[in-house]
Design a protein around this nucleic acid. Structure first.
Lengths: 147, 147
DNA sequence: GGATTTCTTGACACTAGGTATCACTAAGCT
DNA sequence: AGCTTAGTGATACCTAGTGTCAAGAAATCC
């Protein structure tokens, strides 16, 4: 009777993925996946806690976020003020464009700075393992609105 | 009688800078600058609190770190585990190379990704304001030691 | 279908990192 | 030396997140 998979193909896919990996599909996990799917784009743990309400304990929300992040179903976004938010993760390594005006987040497509970084780091004798990059700016809508 | 400016030209410069900007040179601020200068390279607020001991209150340590960061005398380093550390800041915008093995931090010289970012972001309609980049890897010493 | 096993949960206490309040202190000016 | 105001420290508080553990519920086995 509920909205099944009408609004949430990602929820279904995530449940499949977790089930296949040996995780139990518990009521709190299902509710959290639904709540995440209903979030605007990215969310903080606190927002998710309020979204699911008292039906799911606080610790479980954090545990589930961590688990989903480790399984690459979610990715972290570091907002400009330093707080951590989460959003559905498409693929592997990628970066984010964060609009400082409306908060919207887009994936940054086509970034390939690894080779540049490796070259620059070599000047200091470093071998690069990884990097963390977030880009802040203003999205097309906000620029149009403010112009 | 104390070690005056023998070990700490940066301390002296920082005191000048603060004084010129209208900040009072209080005992806690002097002690904190000395303690920071005696830190290995980068430090967490907690390490600094312990370094100065009970002579300076916890709130004052955080306030002073924030003030020095706003004045660009310190810069933030986001370590791989997400914790924030601080170190003397040389110039304006720059990035860090963090050794994941020994924790050492170097400034990344010559990074100029702004134009690349601006071009990539434009594909999503974003105008880039700024970015945050930290690079993780292993320094020459650690690689030599582990080889 | 029912018992079993093991994963998961929720409540709670706790930690780390940082901020707000506010009476009191002391820097710097004159 | 006295005044004014910035700065301090104690304390309480806050956010974000983790560790513990008894109780509950998936999935499996029979």
């Amino acid at each position: 009777m509920s909205s099944q998979s009408t609004l949430a193909p990602r929820v279904h896919a995530a449940e499949q993925s977790l089930g296949a990996a040996g995780y139990r599909l518990t009521r709190p996990r299902r509710e959290l996946l639904r709540a995440i799917a209903a979030m605007p784009d990215h969310f903080t743990p606190d927002e998710l806690i309020h979204a699911v309400g008292p039906a799911v304990g606080r610790a479980t929300v954090f545990r589930t976020i961590r688990m989903l992040t480790e399984r690459d179903l979610l990715c972290r976004v570091r907002l400009e003020d330093g707080t951590l938010a989460y959003r559905w993760s498409g693929a592997g390594h990628h970066h984010h464009l964060v609009c400082v005006s409306c908060g919207r987040v887009d994936d940054l497509q086509g970034c390939d700075i690894d080779s540049d970084l490796a070259r620059l780091a070599a000047a200091s004798g470093f071998a690069v393992d990884g990097h963390w990059l977030e880009v802040y700016g203003r999205c097309a809508d906000c620029r149009a609105r403010e112009a």
